[in-house]
Design a protein around this nucleic acid. Structure first.
Length: 546
RNA sequence: AGUGGGGUAGGGCAGCUUGGAGUGCCCGUCGGGCUCAUAACCCGAAGGUCGGAGGUUCAAAUCCUCUCCCCACUACCA
């Protein structure tokens, strides 16, 4: 089976934080790793979303051109994804030539099929900067409560939603000048015209979607679809190949989803068609809840409107948000752990990954809490799992010089039903629950050891003790596999110690390790977190004090 | 204001779709066992009127209505 997996493209004008990481990139990664272990042909596409107003603004702030800015952040992002062991097959960028070509091609097909309409609007325009101002970049007096400092979209003082045209005495936040109203025309995708086809398709697949993805999408449909602009008056973007639109670019939510295809083309050339125009491909997409409508409604609409046989998403998986110590992650307030921070703590990427999957916000928002991080890592990862591996290896070393004895399979029998549960959960990308299932398996291992006490039995029945220890070693293969999507480094170490090739996957997971195999010492798999150190980190990343 | 999500033992959660004795997970507390292991592992106990009110039902944490709190998002801002 061909499984195509995408992670939402991170926006490259900032450093991603832990919530961004687990929300899409790491969620997709665990799923991709799992699918490979199940013997499927996998293409995991990751990339960066580089267009958009925010990039232009941020570039100005940093005194760079947009190009320089995205180049700078691309490197930062790549380093973080690599450090977190993201197993992407393709890592590309929405600004690539390949993407430009595909975006313009898809645009032309939609245009030819008559799914765009043109509309004219009045918008605030800065003559000095020669640009239209998006809502967030104008401020003025609120027309309702008359307090100063209301933004173009909303007044923070009274909470009312505003239209930027109604602001009294508007000022451009860019250059401090007074903007004028100017007419501009845009292209809108005609979603009402696509609605029927879209809803039919959605109802045929959304049983595979996550709880949040389903809810958010049905909410949108309930409210009825409206035309949405897909062009912008910006310079930083993909040019619109149409007469009269020479000074406009595509809205980044037009080109960003198409960049999944563009990045694939950037990565494997014309073979991208084997993945995106092939009915035998199953597509899974991972994203945060804010991105759902763009993947469940917008992107499929674009593809349907081309009338080409593009692959549409089958499994749409959306996570909620992870908060930080009962608050939001905030770059500006320096609150929370960001990708680069995680690297610098000296805590292993497996440890970070473990906790992030462990608190993955599958249905609702969850919390990153340092105290909880310490407790879960130390109790579950170190004391339960790491310790089980360690005590078995030690026992086998002590009594049998590391040589595996003959097993009888009784322990494997106990855990067989759990693997079925694990498969069911992973197939639905319930990664947090699947990880708990893996913990249950090592927990059963610990209990088995305790109940059979081979260290005592060895005094009277060495062969019996050998069987028990060998039974535990047989479990290593299963454990290395079920943990592999989450903590790949540790899994690799375990598989190496029993000379098992992880890439063989789950195929013969219950076949024991050959009697007489030398079980190589692994050492300490996971370092415990020190309470004092955790407290220091908690302090360090608590943000700017007011 | 609208929309979405949440309120389950001292803390953090799962269970709710497809009602069946408050079941479970990670901790915390108390007691016991074990000594292979990173003072790790195993067993047991105490602790909850499942936010509140009403309804459906033989039966409600679970379904319905109302109500009170908490959080997030709100679309030219990705």
């Amino acid at each position: 089976m061909k499984v195509l997996i995408t992670s939402a493209l991170p926006y490259v004008n900032n450093i991603p934080h832990l919530g961004n990481l687990i929300g899409s990139v790491l969620s997709a990664d665990a799923f991709a790793r799992y699918q490979r272990l199940r013997g499927n042909e996998v293409l995991f596409v990751l990339g960066t979303d580089e267009y958009g107003t925010t990039t232009e603004v941020k570039a100005r702030e940093e005194g760079l051109t947009p190009r320089e800015l995205v180049d700078k952040y691309f490197v930062i992002h790549k380093r973080i994804y690599d450090w977190f062991n993201t197993s992407y097959d393709c890592l590309g960028r929405s600004t690539s030539e390949a993407n430009k070509k595909i975006v313009q091609d898809i645009f032309s097909k939609i245009y030819k099929n008559g799914y765009f309409i043109e509309g004219e609007v009045e918008q605030l325009y800065s003559e000095k900067s020669n640009m239209f101002l998006s809502d967030r970049f104008v401020e003025g007096e609120c027309p309702i409560c008359h307090k100063a400092g209301a933004r173009g979209d909303q007044c923070d003082a009274c909470g009312n939603l505003l239209d930027q045209k109604d602001l009294i005495n508007p000022i451009s936040k860019f250059d401090g000048t007074v903007p004028i109203l100017k007419k501009t025309k845009h292209l809108y995708i005609n979603l009402p015209k696509l609605e029927k086809e879209l809803t039919n398709w959605i109802s045929s697949v959304d049983s595979n979607w996550s709880f949040l993805a389903k809810n958010i999408t049905s909410q949108w449909l309930k409210q009825g679809l409206k035309e949405r602009a897909i062009t912008r008056d910006l310079k930083w973007g993909i040019p619109v190949p149409l007469e009269g639109y020479e000074n406009k670019v595509f809205y980044s939510w037009f080109d960003a989803p198409i960049a999944y295809i563009g990045i694939t083309a950037e990565c494997i050339g014309e073979k991208y068609k084997d993945w995106w125009l092939n009915k035998d491909v199953t597509l899974y997409q991972f994203m945060g809840k804010d991105n759902v409508p763009f993947h469940s409604i917008m992107f499929p609409s674009y593809l349907i409107a081309t009338k080409e046989p593009y692959v549409l998403v089958n499994g749409l998986d959306s996570t909620a948000y992870i908060n930080y110590e009962n608050d939001k992650f905030s770059k500006s307030k320096e609150k929370g752990v960001f990708g680069n921070d995680a690297i610098e703590t000296g805590i292993s990427s497996d440890t970070w990954r473990y906790y992030l999957y462990r608190v993955r916000p599958e249905d609702d928002d969850t919390e990153f809490l340092w105290g909880d991080f310490e407790a879960k890592v130390n109790n579950e990862l170190v004391n339960n799992f790491g310790n089980f591996i360690n005590r078995v290896v030690s026992l086998n070393q002590k009594f049998f010089n590391g040589i595996k004895q003959k097993s009888n399979g009784e322990l494997i029998e106990k855990v067989k039903p759990l693997l079925d549960d694990y498969f069911k959960l992973m197939d639905k990308s319930r990664e947090r629950d699947a990880l708990l299932k893996a913990n249950e398996i090592s927990s059963i291992g610990n209990k088995y050891l305790q109940d059979t006490a081979p260290w005592t039995l060895a005094k009277t029945d060495l062969i019996g003790a050998g069987t028990i220890i060998a039974n535990c070693i047989d479990l290593f293969k299963l454990l290395s596999l079920v943990y592999s999507p989450f903590i790949p480094d540790a899994s690799k170490k375990i598989s190496e110690s029993i000379s098992f090739n992880l890439s063989d996957g789950f195929l013969n997971v219950f076949d024991g390790i050959k009697t007489g195999t030398e079980i190589k010492p692994i050492g300490i798999l996971f370092q415990k977190l020190e309470h004092k150190q955790v407290e220091e980190f908690k302090q360090k990343f608590s943000g700017i004090k007011k």
